[in-house]
Amino acid sequence: MKRLSILFLFLVFAASLSAQDDLMNMLKDSTKAEINYTTATFKSTRVINGHSVQMMAPGQLDVRISHRFGRVNLGAYEFFGLDQSNMHFSLEYGITKWLMVGIGRGSYEKTFDGFAKYSILSQSSGARNMPVSVSALTSIAATSLKWADPTRTNYFSSRLSYVGQVMIARKFSPSFSLQLTPTIVHRNLVPTELDPNDIYAVGAGGRMKLTRRISLNAEYFYMINSKKYMSETIYDPFSVGFDIETGGHVFTLLFTNSLQMIEKGFVGETTGNWLKGDIHFGFNISRVFTLKQ
């Protein structure tokens, strides 16, 4: 009899176990496949200097302050560049899921700039499979230096330059993302007739997570225009840096051969040569505030 009751208990127990599995299966059957969007392809809206595919979420304000110091090869007298400083700050805001705008000001040539960035595709898996995220950027920059020659007729349009850019990125794994960035820069006025008004470039940027909060980023823009005959020796910008994330901040500590922090500047106006040590130390600070929930 004892044995039988054990058997009975066992039966009930087995029944209840399988019942829970059955219930779980009911849920599995009923859950429809969902679209699983990839998040955080990059930790901030910039890879290093250039924009990443990442958007500011709606209602969020990103306050960014960036510095680039002088060239490290200036030596001890200039404290390896740290005595000189070039800065850019901007306010950037997410309007909808697919649109963000920003305005900024940089000390280099006293430049004001504004941009709009649109999200076109979002990488996803599940119910909809999309291998890449795609965003597009349009921006305009206006220098505000005093005219070099005030006696001649100067046009405001001479101060302007425009950028069009497409960011195509894929997060290959939780710790590795890669981006390609075809870019056009149009400058209304160039220093000499040797310099092209339109600059074509293709950028490549990547991010590799080292820990949960620190990632190694690198970015390179290849200029398609021949650099041979320009009035000044121009180099392709290459930057490498670390994203360090703490709560609402992202700090980027970086080394780059370009002094400027906007597209119009680092694509086509970079005069530093990595091989000669024309490297600038710099940082970006991004602080995000939630204005609207």
């Binding site: 829970q20 219930l23 779980m24 849920l27 859950t31 209602g59 969020q60 939630t290 929930q293």
Partner: peptide
């Protein structure tokens, strides 16, 4: 009839006030 309860939650379906 048995009192069995099961729950299944997608982690990504948790929504916060702040996107970050």
């Amino acid at each position: 009839s048995t009192g069995d309860m099961v729950f299944q939650v997608l982690i990504k379906s948790f929504h916060f006030e702040k996107a970050l």
